[in-house]
């Protein structure tokens, strides 16, 4: 039963949402919207579990003096301070003049931007590996990348107007064809996975069973 009940719920909700997507009748539409609201409430409740897990893991790590345990304390302190300030400011916590917004802009945003900025260095190292010519395919990739990069900057057009034209052709024809092929395949994969889940053929995500499709 531990496995059958979730499958039954998935089947009923899945089919109802599928029908609700295509049938605009109020009876179906209202039920469809209700199910979506229930999902939102469930996701909201999981934040309690998530924060409890975060506190448990990090406080336990800090108390047991695990590797880099001071960082765990910093994380817990940051969580509690942000939560405390957010709750103390009530509904106005998102106002531009609130302390919560100030902390978000001056603490979180710069740290987040720093992480994002690292991407430039990672792209350089990844590009170095990608464009090393070790096979015919790698050579084609390197040539295409060279044309594309030079075609996207003014100097490409200064050398010859054929370079930007070639770059545009690469993007619009071979790149687009490959991308559309992948997208069509992915869309079919989405449908197949959805049908497998709704019909209960795929049961791996459930619990307490034999742990595989049956």
């Amino acid at each position: 039963m531990k496995r059958e009940i979730p499958i039954l719920i998935t089947l009923v909700c899945g089919l109802f949402c599928l029908i609700g997507f295509f049938v605009p009748h109020p009876w179906v539409r209202n039920g469809y919207e209700d199910i979506q609201n229930w999902a939102l409430i469930l996701v909201g409740l999981t934040y309690v579990l998530g924060v409890a897990n975060l506190l448990r893991v990090n406080l336990r790590g800090a108390s047991q003096r695990a590797t880099d345990w001071p960082y765990k304390l910093v994380l817990v302190a940051a969580l509690l301070v942000m939560m405390g300030i957010g709750f103390s400011e009530g509904d106005s916590y998102l106002d531009s003049t609130s302390k919560f917004s100030w902390m978000y802009k001056n603490f979180y945003s710069p740290m987040s931007a720093t992480m994002f900025a690292l991407l430039a260095f990672f792209i350089a190292s990844a590009a170095f590996r990608a464009f090393r010519i070790r096979s015919t395919e790698a050579m084609l990739l390197a040539i295409a990348a060279f044309i594309l990069m030079i075609g996207r900057v003014p100097v490409g057009n200064m050398i010859s107007h054929y370079i930007p034209d070639a770059a545009n052709w690469l993007m619009e024809v071979p790149q687009n064809a490959a991308k559309r092929g992948i997208l069509i395949g992915a869309a079919l994969g989405v449908m197949a996975t959805g049908i497998r889940l709704i019909l209960g053929i795929e049961k791996t995500y459930g619990s307490g069973g034999d742990g595989g499709a049956s």
């Binding site: 997208l183 197949a192 996975t193 791996t204």
Partner: peptide, 8 residues
């Protein structure tokens, strides 16, 4: 793409 969905 679809390989990912087919893997399971």
């Amino acid at each position: 793409g679809e390989e990912y969905y087919a893997a399971s």
